[in-house]
Structures are given as C-alpha cells and as structure tokens.
Computed example of a mutant assay.
Amino acid sequence: MARSSIIAIGASAGGVAALRSLAAALPSTLSAPILVVLHIGAYRSELPALLNAAGPLSAKHAEDGEAIYPGHIYVAPPDRHLIVADGRLRLLRGPKENCARPAIDPLFRSFAESYGPGAVGVVLTGNLNDGTLGLLEIKRCGGVAIAQDPTDADYPEMPRSAAEHVALDYCLPLAEIPKLLVELVDRKGGRDVAMPKNSSQRDGQEPEIIDSRTFERPLTVTCPDCGGALKRFEVGSIVKFGCHIGHSYTAENMAAAQFEEMEKVMRAAVRFLNERAEFCLQMAEHGWDGKPDASNDWHAASKQALDRAYKLRDLVEQDWLTPETSHQLALTLDGYEQTRLPG
C-alpha cells in the first residue's frame, strides 16, 4: 500500500466532537495536510478555533487558491464546496450535493483525481450517505478508504453506507483512527507518493469535471409553461416538442417561449438584487445592532448587490443570437419570392 501524502475527512451530525477528538490525538509532527468538510450549510462556523484549541495542529478555514502545507488542517468554510485543483485549494459555490454545501463528495472526487494512491479519505459520524461515492472514487484511484466503525459513531448512517458500498481498507473506532493516520503518513515502504496532477498532465484526455464550472448536458429539455419534460417528435418535416400536460411547440415557437421565460427569470433576479441592495442600505442607515462595523458590512453588501444587479441587467439587454427568428425570416422571404415567380 502506498504511503499517504494527504488526508481528507468528512463528517456530519456528531462531527464537531469527533473532529475535536481526532485533532487532540494527532501529533504536531504530522507530515501531511488534512482537509475537512463538516456539514454546516451557510451558518457561521467556529470549527477551526475548536480544532486549534483541541490539538497541536494549526487549523483554519480554507481560502480560495491557497497552497497546501503539511501539518495544517484546512476546513471548508460555510456555504462553499472545498476541492483540490492543480495542487491548490479551491472554494466553489456550486450546486448543493446530497442537500449540502459544503459537501464531502466534491472534495473526495477532486482529491482522488489529484492525488491517486497518495490520498486517504475518512468518513466519520453523520446521517444519510454523503462521502460514500467520493470514497469509492478514492478507492478506485488507488487511495486508502477509511470509515469510522458505525457501532462507534454517534450517528452511524454515513459510515455504515461507506462500509456497505466501498471495499474499505480500514473500519475502526474513532479512537484508533489518529494512530492509523500517523502510520500511513510515516510508512516508508510501498510505492512513491503520488504527486498532484494538473490538467496538462492528463495525457490529452478530457479533464474530469470536478469544480462545478462546466455544465453537463441536461437529461431533457423542459416545458417553458409548466416545467414538465418535453418529448421531441417529427410530423413530416416539422419538428415539434410536447409535454405530458399537453403543451406543444414547433421548434421555432419553443425557442421563442424558452427565450421569453429565460428573460423573465433573469429580470426577476435583477429585481431581487436591487431589492437586496435597498434592504441592506436601510439596515446600514438605521445602525443595525448599534455596531459601526456592522453598518460598514451592510453598506458593502448593498454596494455588492447593486453592482451585480447592473451587471446582470447589462447581460440581459445584450443582443442574443436568435437562429429561430432568422430561420423563420428566411422561410418567409423564400415564400414571398415564390409568389413573384412568373407562372
């Protein structure tokens, strides 16, 4: 088994106590970085301070683009997925996964892609099954898969799911995991540690989507009227789309209806941003909670919302490509020319 070079840990319910216990048992000489995701949603997190107080390793909230150093604990901040890309930490406000942001699976997937056999993934206490698919990917790439013994976890569902679906290398009580991590990091035998890979090192293959910045093709196109799935069919040479409610469109009408709905949604977003700017400005002007710093924060939030409202409005009002109208115009002109041909 390869010697580990980097550790990622995921936890949910009961995770604060478990992570503090783990941090307390790790030595200051640990020669590997630790990346941590705890399901905290968008709420304020004091986890780095709690881990700093619990053990000798330095803990902090991860920052976008920062380098990764041994002997440090990097915690996913509120409302941001934490991933690894090109040897650095990235923070993304991508879609929620398993109803969570930050979620464990995005970190584990990027972790496996970047470090291969040098990666160690650990799933601790928690409900449901976030972390299972990511741990499976770590295992597939040659890394080490660890789960807390479900019978030892305050909330056993997450580690139980990992144990049921992944060929774990270790399934241990929480008290035994710190010693195992030290042994994996310090082990001298086995293969060399895998180095982080970047996109230029992937043999010309399409890079795996790990940062939620590229959209997958949707499974279907939905109805602009009701949101139901549309079925595509042809009547002679005419392409039509219809949903199970009964709404139907020719291709040209579908494109026009879709564009109209898109513009409506984007203009609604402009309105919400403008209203947020006004709300934050009112809070700043009324001296919310009597703290000068808070007033400055409200002013900054108002300015940010207004700036983004202007940018989105400019985007909506740009010229858009509308091949459906161009095609319809060409057909109309062609028909007009035919009526003028001599008989």
Rank of each mutant, 00 (worst) to 15 (best):
Q282L: 13
A194K: 02
S200G: 04
V166R: 05
M158A: 09
R191Q: 11
D154M: 04
G246L: 03
Q148Y: 02
K240Q: 13
I146A: 09
C243R: 01
A269K: 00
H244S: 15
V270N: 03
K197P: 01
T214D: 06
T151V: 08
G190E: 07
Q148L: 04
L168W: 08
G236Y: 09
S248E: 12
E278S: 10
N198D: 14
E208G: 07
G242V: 06
A175F: 02
E164K: 10
D289A: 13
E263A: 12
I238K: 09
A229H: 04
R217L: 09
R271A: 12
R276G: 11
E275L: 10
N253W: 04
E176I: 00
A251V: 05
E206K: 09
E216L: 10
A268Q: 10
F241E: 05
P224Q: 12
S237T: 15
S199T: 08
I177H: 00
R160S: 13
D289W: 05
H244K: 09
E260S: 14
G228N: 13
L174T: 01
A256T: 07
L273T: 08
V221D: 10
C223V: 08
A145R: 05
P156W: 00
P156L: 03
D192A: 14
D186A: 14
N274E: 12
D225R: 09
V166D: 04
D211K: 01
Q201L: 13
E275D: 15
P178L: 08
L172E: 04
G290E: 04
V193Q: 12
C243E: 02
A268L: 09
